[in-house]
Structures are given as structure tokens and as C-alpha cells.
Write a protein that binds this DNA or RNA. Structure first.
Lengths: 223, 223
DNA sequence: CGCAACCGGAGGTGAAACCTCCGGTTGGGC
DNA sequence: GCCCAACCGGAGGTTTCACCTCCGGTTGCG
């Protein structure tokens, strides 16, 4: 495509403001997630709302841009875990660190799990995350540490459970979520005494994909 | 107090409407929880909004009135479990049924866990629920089935985790929450092989009380 | 038959989020 | 140093939505 718009460099003040906005976005979205307003971001950045809207067509565009690094770090984290020699400890640590990251950054949580549209590089991140998790799960089972009936798709639900507890409790009591996570991780471990099988089937990949989207559309008035 | 307002009986049409409203409220609040509108309830009842507001000063009053039976049934359920001969199976079944009830009735979930004010009879329900759960937990540990470091307050978090999964998944995939619950219940069981202790302390009663309230007040704009 | 009690639902009120617009400011090429 | 395109700020338009009020019309019942 020859007719691409030439990316003339920004004026120095404009450049400075873009950076302030990105930094502010990281903070504000981290604290409040998608619920934060571009007005909030502008205020935090010490900049007018108009300035924000001049650079980003809407909230989601800014969210994506501001959290791209975080997203990449998460992907790297997952792939690193998949490369570990012992799968189970790596998986357990991964879930803990993943959850910690989502708790720290509500924006990332929303981007990954509640984002209304399927962004391109989000899909690409998923393409790297899914197989890594699948192999980790596979290997952890082979080690005899992870229960046989656990499915990789369940990890999404585990993260959902833990972050929900974190959100529910963060105002009243910090740091109880690791306790809940520990409970769940213990439930994930294969037990040699008195095993009880999981009921029902796990989520299909298809259902997994629809989770975020379904969550966002308004449950509007029923006749 | 002598000057009490005499409760003159309602006109027949009024009485009929009150009943329709309560029935509609049970339905609508069950489906959508506190997020439902009194306008919704009125529409479902086939009645004008004004009629609803004439009987109930606000949404919460109607919610309380409509869900009183459900609340009592839950209390009874808890007390029945506490009276069971074997504590652990009773506890596990109780958590499952409690969760199922909360999933079925989002309104009850909101009333119990997200209600902005501490209603009188809600507090009274808690007075009956807490000791029953405490004794059940105590006994399940004595049986050697429940892990020693589990706290009664953790049950609140377990329910929170499970209902959050249920809410997240209900649009895309029904009935995965029992799977998650099973995972958690398995984590709650004492293990004789390779036990791992829970990190951090459990919630204090005080923090437990503050959970619902904290959740509701708006995280309004920062500076 | 008369009137107090009741009804419906249009619309007032307020809060909030998102984004636009334009008068004023400023960086940087010449 | 001058000038103007690029940029800035932020007041306010627009929309949406929930909550609740109000009043002209209807109805049960003594």
C-alpha cells in the first residue's frame, strides 16, 4: 500500500503530552480498570480531555496502547513457565503471579477478560498463551502433581475466581486473595487419598472465547 | 407506643397488585439482581410504576420484602446442615446448595453480599448463620475431613468465588460453576499426603461485615 | 351513589460518561 | 524574530439511564 499517511513527527509539547497520557493511563486503568474515564486519565496527566481525544479515538484504543507492555510481559511469563523443567511448581507459581498482576492492574484484567472487541494483538497473545498453558498442564499431569481431570480451560476460571475475590475484598481487607488461591491450587493437585472427580465438562475453546464478550453487553430491560 | 398507624386493610384491587408486584419482584430480582429497576418490576407485574412506588419507598424495601422467604429458607438450610450427624458431607452439600441458590437468585446474592445498608432482619439472619457455620466448621475439622487452617470466614469467600464464576459464565456456558466449586471443596479437604498450609490470615468478623458495604459505594473520580 | 383510595405512566430530576468545539497558545521552520 | 500550522484546555453539548413524582382518570365499597 503506497498511499499510507506519512507519520510526521509530533511537536515536542505534543510528544511530551502523549507520554504523560500513557503514564497516567497505566496508573488510572491499573487502579480502576475500564471503568475509569478518559476524563480521569486527562486529569491525572495534567492535560485537557481534548488532548487525550486528539490522540486516541476512544478509551479502548488508549487502554490497548498503554497496556501493551504489560500484556507482553504476561505472555513472556507464561512462556517462561512453560519452559521450566518441573511443570507443577512452575504452573502454581505462574497462576499466582498472573493473578497478582491482574489484581495489581485492573485494566489488564478488563483488557484480557472483559474487553468488548477482539483486538488483533490480543488474539495473537492468546495464540502464544494457549499452547504454552496446554503443554504445562499436560506435563504437570504427567508428573502426577496436577489432577487428571483438570483442563487448561479451567485456568481461566481459576483466575476469574481469584481476581473476583481480590476485587470484592480489596476495600475491606487486603491480601486475602492469596489464601483463596492457595485453597484452589490445593484442589488442583492430584490426591492419592480419597480422590473425588470433577463434575460436568470443562469449557470448550469456543465458550472460552465468548466469555469476555458476553460479559460486557448490557443486560438491557426486559419488556 | 399508643399512636401506631392503624393498618387499614387494602382495597381488593390494591391487594391483588401488591401480590403481583411481589411475584414479579421475585422473578426480576432473581434474574438481574439489584441492577433491575422498579420500572422493570412494574412492567413484569403488568402495573404502573406509580403503583410500585406507592407500596415501597424504594428498591431495597421491595427487594427485602420479596426475598424474605428465600432468606429464611437459606437460614433454615444452614441450621439443618449444622444439625447433621456428619459435618463434612453436610458442609459440602450446604455450600453447593447455598451457591446454587445464589446463582438462581441474583437478588439474594445482592441482598446478602452487596446490600448497601445493614438491614435489621439481615443482621438477625447473620446471627443465626454465623454460629451454625462455626460449629459445622469446627466439627468437620474434628472429623479430620476439613483442613485445620480453614476458617469459617473463608466460606464467604468461597461462595463469592463460585458465584462470580457463575455470573461470568452464565451467558456463554451454563453450569460450569459446579466444576469450580468441586475444585475448591477438594482444596478444603484435609490431605494426608503432601499438605500445604494456607498463607496469610483469614478475614476477621469485622472485615467480613464491611465486605458488602465497601463493594457498593462508588469509586468516584480521583482529584 | 359518592368519595376515598387507588391506578397508570408521562415526564421531571439528577448523575454520569463520552466526545466536540473553538478561542487561545506555542513550537519551530525560515 | 515572526508567523502560522499544530497544538492546547476544558466548558459544555449530547445521550443515556435510573429513580421517583404527580395528577387526571378509575374503581371498590360503605
Amino acid at each position: 500500500m503506497p498511499g499510507r499517511a506519512k507519520p510526521r513527527p509530533l511537536r515536542r509539547d505534543a510528544q511530551r503530552n502523549v507520554e504523560r497520557i500513557r503514564a497516567a493511563a497505566r496508573e488510572v486503568f491499573g487502579e480502576r480498570g475500564l471503568e475509569a474515564t478518559l476524563d480521569d486519565v486527562a486529569a491525572r496527566a495534567g492535560v485537557g480531555v481534548g488532548t487525550v481525544y486528539r490522540r486516541y479515538p476512544n478509551k479502548l484504543a488508549l487502554l490497548e496502547d498503554a497496556l501493551e507492555d504489560e500484556l507482553q510481559r504476561v505472555v513472556a511469563m507464561v512462556e517462561a513457565a512453560a519452559a521450566a523443567p518441573e511443570a507443577w511448581p512452575a504452573l502454581a507459581a505462574l497462576v499466582e503471579r498472573f493473578a497478582a498482576q491482574l489484581v495489581r492492574s485492573h485494566g489488564l484484567d478488563d483488557l484480557l477478560f472483559r474487553s468488548p472487541v477482539a483486538q488483533e494483538h490480543l488474539a495473537r497473545a492468546n495464540e502464544r498463551i494457549r499452547p504454552a498453558l496446554a503443554s504445562l498442564v499436560r506435563r504437570a499431569k504427567d508428573e502426577g502433581e496436577l489432577r487428571d481431570d483438570f483442563a487448561a480451560a479451567d485456568l481461566r476460571l481459576v483466575l476469574g475466581m481469584v481476581t473476583s475475590v481480590a476485587r470484592d475484598t480489596e476495600a475491606a481487607a487486603h491480601e486475602v486473595w492469596p489464601r483463596c488461591l492457595a485453597l484452589v491450587l490445593d484442589g488442583m493437585r492430584q490426591r492419592r487419598d480419597r480422590p473425588t472427580p470433577l463434575p460436568t465438562r470443562p469449557l470448550s475453546d469456543d465458550e472460552l472465547d465468548r466469555l469476555g464478550r458476553a460479559r460486557l453487553q448490557r443486560p438491557r430491560r426486559s419488556r
